[in-house]
Design a protein around this nucleic acid. Structure first.
Lengths: 141, 141
DNA sequence: TGTAATTCCTCTAGTGACTAGAGGTTCAAG
DNA sequence: CTTGAACCTCTAGTCACTAGAGGAATTACA
């Protein structure tokens, strides 16, 4: 049995976040001591690690919820898990490619006034002028 | 003179967002018609484009505010602009490298049960098991 | 057993950067 | 002059937490 603090240490998930997950229904309400403190078992620990891992991978909580609901499922249902992974992967690749074009532009901006801060800095100009960009870029999510 | 809707069309910034920027002090309060509607000039347009561009580059609004306050500055102050660009660039590179390791892991997860959904799907297992990861990964911000 | 330090409880509110909707007013075209 | 589109303010919601207040329970040690 773990106190909430112990569970936090074992999973690297902060205490308020654990309570937050409970509120959201991602973690079941645990048993309580006579003094109303939460006590967790290994099942809860595993579930929390699962959530954390999904979060680390960038899945939104709604997707995590979907995956958790597949526990013990089989056959067609499991395609959902596969789809979530695929969708997340596509999203990630998109994000990476957009970030790379931003990197190119920021590099350009940063170099624009290296050393010569005497007059009007080109950085400011470059930040403001969208037309100088190599291509269009969207929000970096 | 632009109405807020026109300004929105010219800048691709949504109307509520323009008002939000005004609230935050990033855009000066514009003149109003007799009927209390906002009217913007080209200066406001340029400023809004600047903000949008910075946002596209991933700068938080506090940094944008900092850059805007440098308007008309010279000399040492401009180092701040340079620093913001550098800091953002470092941040971006970090983000890209972390996302790339996530990509590798998601690819692995997604392939784990290609075709064979008969029994317990490996995707679910892979999502849950942190130890299978190539290396440690942090939140993808 | 006493007490002090630590951990825990609930509840509210704040973060960033918007977005959505209600309910009402003004503007521009025909 | 009427109609419909665009505008106004204000409140509240989003996501995924995070922080703090004020108080109760637990644990460690003497």
């Amino acid at each position: 049995m773990y106190s909430i603090g112990n569970l936090s240490r074992h999973t690297q998930v902060k205490i308020p976040t654990i309570r937050f997950y409970e509120d959201k229904g991602l973690l079941p309400r645990p048993d309580r001591t006579a003094g109303n403190q939460r006590r967790y078992d290994d099942t809860a620990l595993k579930r929390l690690l699962f959530i954390r891992h999904c979060r680390d991978l960038g899945l939104p909580l709604t997707d995590v919820e979907g995956l958790l609901s597949l526990e013990g499922a089989s056959g067609g249902d499991l395609n959902q898990a596969h789809e979530i992974a695929e969708r997340q992967l596509a999203d990630l690749r998109d994000r990476i490619s957009r970030l790379r074009s931003l990197e190119a532009e920021l590099t350009r901006i940063s170099k624009a006034c290296d050393g010569k801060h005497d007059h009007v800095c080109a950085v400011l100009h470059a930040f403001g002028d969208h037309n100088e960009c190599a291509g269009p870029h969207a929000h970096s999510k």
